[in-house]
């Protein structure tokens, strides 16, 4: 049986302590800059906060993983190198990286610190994953959310590193690390600036009938009726009118969250080492609820009991959940 580590999100020091106390095996977090893919206003850690967080987590047997999972623009690698230097100095247990230049720097400078390959690297074939393992010593790959469980099982047999899969949370999965939709509308890059649908470009407009429009850079992404559940203002979850669908439809994805609680035993059996919960941008309340629920489920499964997972639908986007490609390629 794999280790089935629970990898939990933390957007603030308080969320990190919450995740640790709720039973996380490892917590992932980032600095307050473009070096990570949740570069949101008011979120993330200063170096001093990270130092305290590492002390808190390590004292309780929990690991801290530092996300450096964006791509430095040409000629601007110093920010990423500096972040790696700081993380290494503070004693993080692993770096989560996407860019080969960042991976190479860490592999050369800090060979004793583990490298995990971010989902943002979009490495979904054994060949791609092996390339990162052989050239940069990557110890774990976070798989893109486009693979079925039989495919994961097969990949596991063909790669020399551990596998981490998402099990809960946001389900925006164009080709991860390659999506330029936000860049197209706002000029900011999800992959280099670390923010999809930057809050400074988002506006919610309430109409007289109680409907709400969500707008990004002046473009209407969706309009929710008075009683309709809402989603994030991301372009991939937008509802658009098109000549063949004038009533408007979800052209890419629906507002929906991934929830693999029922598939945990199958994932463990397929050789997945670690389960990742998405949501560094979410609150302590979310972290507490989701981490506790999955902690109990994983412990039940490890002990040979049937997992009784709490109902997490209230925390899902659009209050809808899916098992996505993990269940079937036809999920859309």
């Amino acid at each position: 049986m794999s280790l089935a580590e629970l990898i939990c999100p933390a957007g603030t020091p308080a969320a990190l302590r919450t995740a640790v106390d709720a039973g996380a095996d490892a917590v992932y977090c980032g600095f307050q800059d473009a070096t990570n893919a949740r570069n949101f206003p008011g979120l993330n850690f200063t170096p001093d906060e990270l130092a305290e967080a590492v002390t808190y987590a390590h004292a309780r047997g929990t690991k801290v993983l530092l996300a450096l999972n964006t791509y430095p623009p040409a000629g601007k690698v110093d920010l990423w190198r500096h972040a790696a230097d700081t993380g290494a100095r503070l004693g993080v247990d692993a770096f989560i990286v996407a860019d080969m230049g960042v991976a190479d720097y860490i592999a050369r400078m800090y060979p004793g610190v583990r490298l995990h390959l971010s989902v943002q690297a979009a490495a979904s074939s054994p060949e791609a994953i092996r390339y990162y393992c052989e050239n940069f010593g990557v110890k774990r790959v976070v798989l893109p959310r486009i693979l079925t469980i039989p495919e994961i099982r097969q990949i596991r047999r063909e790669i020399p590193c551990e596998i981490e899969t998402f099990i809960f949370g946001n389900h925006g999965l164009m080709v991860e690390g390659r999506c330029s939709l936000t860049n197209y509308l706002t000029g900011q890059s999800t992959n280099m600036d670390g923010v999809c649908s930057p809050a400074s470009d988002v506006e919610y407009v309430r109409d007289a009938d109680g409907s709400m429009s969500s707008q990004l850079a002046g473009f209407t992404i969706d309009r929710f009726g008075p009683e309709e559940k809402a989603g994030y203002p991301t372009i991939c979850k937008g509802r658009y009118a098109a000549p063949h669908r004038p009533e408007g439809y979800y052209a890419f994805e629906e507002p929906i969250s991934l929830n693999l609680s029922r598939l945990l035993p199958d994932l463990i059996e397929a050789g997945v080492h670690a389960f990742k919960i998405e949501g560094r941008q979410r609150s302590k309340s979310y972290v507490r609820g989701v981490v506790r629920a999955f902690r109990a489920a994983v412990d039940d499964i490890k002990a040979g009991r049937e997992a009784n997972i709490a109902d997490l639908i209230a925390l899902t986007e659009g209050q809808k959940q899916t098992q996505g490609a993990f269940e079937t390629k036809k999920w859309r």
Binding site: Y204, R206, K229, S283, Y286
Partner: peptide, 19 residues
């Protein structure tokens, strides 16, 4: 409570400067 969840359920409404 989680702010995003309250927003998804439409129990929480925000307007103006989202940032």
């Amino acid at each position: 409570q989680d702010g995003d969840a309250a927003f998804f359920s439409r129990d929480l409404e925000i307007s103006g400067d989202t940032e």
